[in-house]
Design a protein around this nucleic acid. Sequence first.
DNA 1: CGCGAGCTTGACGTTGTTCAACTAGAGTGG
DNA 2: CCACTCTAGTTGAACAACGTCAAGCTCGCG
Lengths: 231, 231
Amino acid sequence: MAKYSRKMACTTCCLTQSIFRGLSPEQLEILNENRHEVEFNAGEIMFKQGTALTHIACILQGMVKIYIEGLNKKNLLIKVARENAIIGGPGMYVDFIHHFSVAALTDVQTCFIDVNSLEKIMKMNQNLALNILKKNNIQGIQNFKKFINLTQKHMSGRIADALLYLADEIHNATSFETPLSRQDIADLTSMSKESAIRILKEFKDARIIELSNNHFTIHDREALVKISDKG
Amino acid sequence: MAKYSRKMACTTCCLTQSIFRGLSPEQLEILNENRHEVEFNAGEIMFKQGTALTHIACILQGMVKIYIEGLNKKNLLIKVARENAIIGGPGMYVDFIHHFSVAALTDVQTCFIDVNSLEKIMKMNQNLALNILKKNNIQGIQNFKKFINLTQKHMSGRIADALLYLADEIHNATSFETPLSRQDIADLTSMSKESAIRILKEFKDARIIELSNNHFTIHDREALVKISDKG
DNA sequence: CGCGAGCTTGACGTTGTTCAACTAGAGTGG
DNA sequence: CCACTCTAGTTGAACAACGTCAAGCTCGCG
């Protein structure tokens, strides 16, 4: 289970990066006093959709999935996040409720920051608000792309997108071992698990990728890009 | 065509509302000096996806559609906006490019505000940044809902959603005349025009709605809600 | 050695798209 | 005033895409 600790020094953790760049030492100290580190085991839920949003989380180590719990127990996997990601959510400044769930894909070390402290710093330092605004907008652009992917592409196009996403944005390698299950890949591409498996097999038979269990190797990147582009 | 004018006084337009609430008179004056009013005829494009984002727009009068131009000339209608809506887009503070297109559904009066001035004010007044952040997050929550609607519901559920959306959030009436074409309704629900027409006819035959041309009347709201909920 | 969870495969039915034909109404020009 | 045309809407039939169901498989683990 999760346990409380303060192993990390503030200066080495994500507070000095990303949206927190440019905070004064005093502002960093306020955050530092209102944070705590938590470890999760693979499979455990960090944030549950519908619960109160009291903290945001920084991923210090490990991988998580961010997903919306939809109809009939079906999930839609919005994104995968790993080291240095900061997970807030659109509930901030609206209803302070989590609008997605977050689950650990691997064992994960996180740093939880109190949203009240965050709000306090935001009122002291305009840069923080602007950084968060920018981060939200980037996510918004990615969501637009996802809308088109999910609603206008056939299954092969969506699987191609997912493979390129994992290779380029998550693992930074053409050959990788993913903690995502087949069901996760199906949730990421909005299709049934069986369909996802079938398309992966097609790609394998066409020598576009190689896969055994959870190890993926992309052989023909251009083919994937072409399949992704034409839908 | 669009024409430049300054008919409105600043105090009566949208600058005093929504995200601009709480600005000082001097800050309002800066905005007022860097804005101009533009009229569009029905059908004209206000923002084109891919062009530079130099201004945000306030809708003073009329209705517009905000849509993503996707694959094979297919559009995805994100939302409909009308009086007092402020249209920016996720390109702000990222790449300053429009990531969606906006077209006038009716004749429209707008007020365009320079993004540089907006940025200047944001650095002077933290409330503006927080208000925009909040507005973005609300849109983010709506996008999550739209993800589930579009990817996990059948056509009848999506059409039911669209009808409830138009009735509740756009026209505020159970009986309304919409400027949306059948194709627009199809784009809003991510299906073919023919399918949208068929579902609307089903609803009409089931006496759930009444429609002639573009006039819609919702007779059995509960039925629509039920259809929407169960997908 | 057996159990169970996740994975795989095939057969089948449903959902939704595409294509083509047809209709209605709104200009337009003789 | 009447063809003519153009666009949006409508309908039906054929077809493709995708999900569901059921069965069998694999592999790690006790």
